[in-house]
C-alpha cells in the first residue's frame, strides 16, 4: 500500500502527456486551472451542481470538480481549449452565431457538455423525456428541443441564455450524419 499523500500520475490533457506528482486531494478542476493554467474550464460551485467545470474524460462528459486526479491515471482529458486543434469547433461557431451567451462564464461547460450529450445521442442513449424509452431509436439529427433541454439540465446559466443555447445545439445536431461533430 501507498502511505504517501501524493502519487505519480500520467494524464493526457488536450493531447499532451503530463507526468506529475499529484496530491491525492487534488481535483481535476484544480489541476487544470491552477497547475496547467487551462483556465477555460470554470469553477462555479465546486460541488457538482452547476456544470461549469464540465470536461471530456476518455470521450465522456464529466464534472472535473468531483474527479480526483489520482483516479485518472492513464486517462485522456479534453477541455474547451483542446476541442479543435485547427481553430474553432462547429459548436463554438454555433454558440457565436446564435448569441448563446451573455457573461460567458457557463459557456465552456455548456459547450463540452453539449459535445458529450450529442455523442450520447449518437450512441442511441435515451433521456427521461424520450417517448417510449424502452424501444425508441434515438437519433441525434432528429432530437427534439425538449430532449436537448433535458440532456443539458446539468448545466446552469445564470444569465438565462438557455433558449439560444438550445438553438445552437439544435443547429449542429440537425447537420449530423452520424459522423463526428
Amino acid at each position: 500500500m501507498n502511505t504517501d499523500t501524493r502519487s505519480m500520475v500520467r494524464i493526457t490533457v488536450n493531447g499532451k502527456v503530463h507526468e506529475q506528482q499529484i496530491d491525492h486531494r487534488s481535483t481535476l478542476l484544480d489541476l487544470l486551472r491552477e497547475t496547467l493554467r487551462l483556465t477555460g474550464t470554470k469553477k462555479g460551485c465546486d460541488h457538482g451542481q452547476c456544470g461549469a467545470c464540465t470536461v471530456l474524460v476518455d470521450g465522456q462528459r464529466v464534472l472535473s470538480c468531483l474527479k480526483l486526479v489520482v483516479t485518472l491515471d492513464d486517462a485522456s482529458v479534453v477541455t474547451i481549449e483542446g476541442l479543435d486543434t485547427d481553430g474553432v469547433h462547429p459548436l463554438q461557431e454555433a454558440f457565436v452565431a446564435r448569441d448563446a451567451l451573455q457573461c460567458g462564464y457557463c459557456t465552456p461547460g455548456q459547450v463540452c457538455s453539449a459535445i458529450g450529450a450529442m455523442d450520447e445521442a449518437r450512441r442511441g442513449w435515451p433521456s427521461l423525456v424520450t417517448p417510449d424509452l424502452a424501444n425508441a431509436e434515438v437519433e441525434l439529427s432528429t432530437l427534439s428541443r425538449e430532449e436537448i433541454r433535458e440532456r443539458m439540465s446539468g448545466n446552469l446559466c445564470r444569465c438565462g441564455a438557455y433558449p439560444s443555447i438550445v438553438d445552437a445545439i439544435e443547429d449542429v445536431a440537425r447537420q449530423d450524419a452520424n459522423g463526428t461533430v
Binding site: 462528459r61 474527479k67 435515451p126 424509452l133
Partner: peptide, 23 residues
C-alpha cells in the same frame, strides 16, 4: 435494460445530470 427493465432506465435518467451519471 431498456427492453427488460425500462423502470431502471427511467429511474436512473430521472436522477442527477448526464455528467454525473457518466461518472
Amino acid at each position: 435494460i431498456r427492453r427488460r427493465y425500462p423502470l431502471v432506465s427511467e429511474a436512473i435518467l430521472a436522477g442527477a445530470s448526464g455528467q454525473i451519471r457518466n461518472a
